[in-house]
Amino acid sequence: MDFQPSTEQKALQEGIRAFCEDRISLDVLPALAEAGGFDRVLWKELAELGVFSLRLAESQGGIGLGAADVVLVFEELGRRLAPGPIVWSELAAGLIEGAATGDCVVGGLDLVQVDVEPHMIEHLDALDALILLREDGLYRTTPDALQATPIDNPLDPLTPVHAVTSLSLSSLSSLSKAERIADAETAKRWRLDAMAQSAALALGIAEATLELALAYAKEREQFDRTIGSFQAIKHMLADMFTRQELARASVYAAGATLDHPEVGDVEQAVRGAKLIAGEAAMKNARACVQVHGGMGYTWEIPAHYYLKRCWVLENGFDAGHAHADWLADRLGAGATDGG
């Protein structure tokens, strides 16, 4: 047992961080939003960095790492709001030709999640391949097989969405071109991986929003003092830190449990992480707005991008309340991962 990331893992994470700080600095977000929230050149660079092929065997052109490494990398991607369907594409690497290299941009729709209609699909215009995730398996189709209306004003300026109009939930027969490419078990595993990755992205947001708020608190002055000297602000920041650390522990535990299921209940670990990190991100993003005062309410301060991305993540691969319900059911069934 050594729960800390190794030196090697820290180096991997730092490499990704350096790339993101250089290529996805907060200054480029407006331009990126302007360009529809997707940048093919950047996508290709992420692929070259190995973001999508982390878990592929070396013989397949990957690095042969595990879920723990993936959460570390996604933590950094979340911190910089990396755009595009990164979760789906990482999952699809190895299953769909070109996903790992970034030549085929893969997105998807999770049809297991119980949600309102219409279904909302992210980044549809950027996709080369589309995966429909159902309880009975994964189906591959082409993006144009969906009848979907583009949404003019997406909540997250960096996450374009379409409202799906033609999909019949109960039957995929309407999708003539849908091909079943994986079984139910794989679909289930994809959802767990996707939850862990979303949780890691959320952890990155919890960190980034604390960083932003902290920097502002140290610099902004009112009443002839930096606002960071007011205890109300200090305690808000201390709570942000505490939430971030709790989220880190649960996200890392999710990665470690996916890699070695013998250490606990995988689904319990992953759902717990999605709930805890999702909440940390959302609360920290809101606090980040508050610490910035009036500036926080403007489009100029990046806090809003983070908060909006939180909503995208929260509503993907089950929202927090669904995870809480699942965990309660598990607890009620008496099958807890007793420590």
Binding site: F3, R248, A249, A269, H323, A324, D325, T336
Partner: peptide
């Protein structure tokens, strides 16, 4: 009671995360 269950499920996630936090800080 769905509200009670949800509250307990939430606490379960928090207590798992807390124990992970202890493991992480002990490792550090």
């Amino acid at each position: 009671d769905a509200a009670l269950r949800r509250e307990i499920g939430h606490m379960q996630a928090e207590s798992d995360a807390l124990w992970a936090m202890v493991k992480l800080s002990v490792s550090q």
